[in-house]
Computed example of a mutant assay.
Amino acid sequence: MRFTVLPTEGVFYELFAKSAGHLVEGARLLGTLVEEGGDTEELAVRMKEIEHRCDEVTHEVIRRLNSTFVTPFDREDIYRLASGLDDVMDDMDAAADYLHLHKIGELPPGVPEQVAVLRQAADLTAAAMPRLRTLKDLDEYWIEINRLENVGDGIYRRSLVALFDGTYDALAVMRQRDVVEQLEAAIDAFEKVANIVEQIAVKES
């Protein structure tokens, strides 16, 4: 009698790591703008390129999911994690778009701090993705992401207060708030990814 051994579908882990790598790239691109300045149009174009690559990874996850009989963990969780990573990229892309479309020269208050949080969250997420294979040593990841999200909330609230203190005219406030809110959404999206990872770890342990 001959038995066929089904290989472990490690491709999903590779795709998650690839998607998280794109988030690191996007966060660093925002960091470069904050630290060095530059053309917001070029930023928007480069961010859109990264966003397209992230979309391609997400679509590949879904294609694999639809054609793979054996998956490393629950199919719905795989889909949720892939979508969650993609949502982070979409939010960073939107923030870059607002910076360009609104022709914002001076960065809104709090943006450098928000971007610093995003960069930390992206690095932590990229480091965590390979550990999905064993589901070990992940608790520090989601705990730290939760802490960063709380830091981000504080920055966001202080940014709104600064925007509405009378220094800026109404139109400038509306434009700059778009950027601040989109960066806040990206930080929140990182926490959602960490929550999904935690749920997977609990379910599969």
Rank of each mutant, 00 (worst) to 15 (best):
M92P: 02
V161R: 13
V45A: 04
E42P: 02
L6M: 03
L85R: 02
H52P: 12
D188F: 05
V45K: 09
G110M: 11
G37Y: 02
D123V: 14
T58R: 09
S159H: 00
R53D: 06
H59W: 09
Y98M: 03
L171I: 13
G31T: 12
M1A: 09
R158Q: 14
G37A: 00
Q199R: 15
R119P: 03
L118S: 00
A27H: 11
G110C: 03
A121E: 01
A194C: 13
D39W: 04
F16G: 07
P72M: 04
Q176V: 13
G152Y: 06
T71Q: 10
M129C: 04
R175F: 06
D86T: 03
K192V: 13
E144I: 01
L15T: 08
E144C: 10
A116G: 04
T71A: 04
S159I: 10
R75V: 02
G26I: 04
L99N: 07
T167A: 10
L138N: 11
L118K: 08
A170F: 15
A20E: 03
T125Q: 03
D93S: 05
L65G: 12
E191C: 10
L118P: 09
Y13R: 03
A116Y: 08
P109M: 04
W142D: 03
D188A: 01
R133N: 08
Y156Q: 10
R64D: 00
I104A: 04
I50A: 00
E14V: 15
N150Q: 15
A126D: 05
V5Y: 00
L101F: 10
R147M: 11
Y168F: 12
G31W: 01
E56N: 14
I78N: 08
L15F: 05
N150F: 15
I62D: 12
D139G: 08
F12V: 15
L85K: 13
P112R: 06
L183A: 10
A95V: 09
M174T: 11
V70A: 09
V111F: 02
A127Q: 14
A172E: 14
T167R: 02
E113V: 08
T167H: 07
I50V: 11
L118A: 05
M47H: 06
G154L: 06
E198K: 15
T68C: 13
E140R: 03
E41C: 13
L33R: 04
M89H: 07
R28I: 11
G154V: 01
A116W: 01
L107F: 10
F164T: 13
E42K: 06
P72T: 01
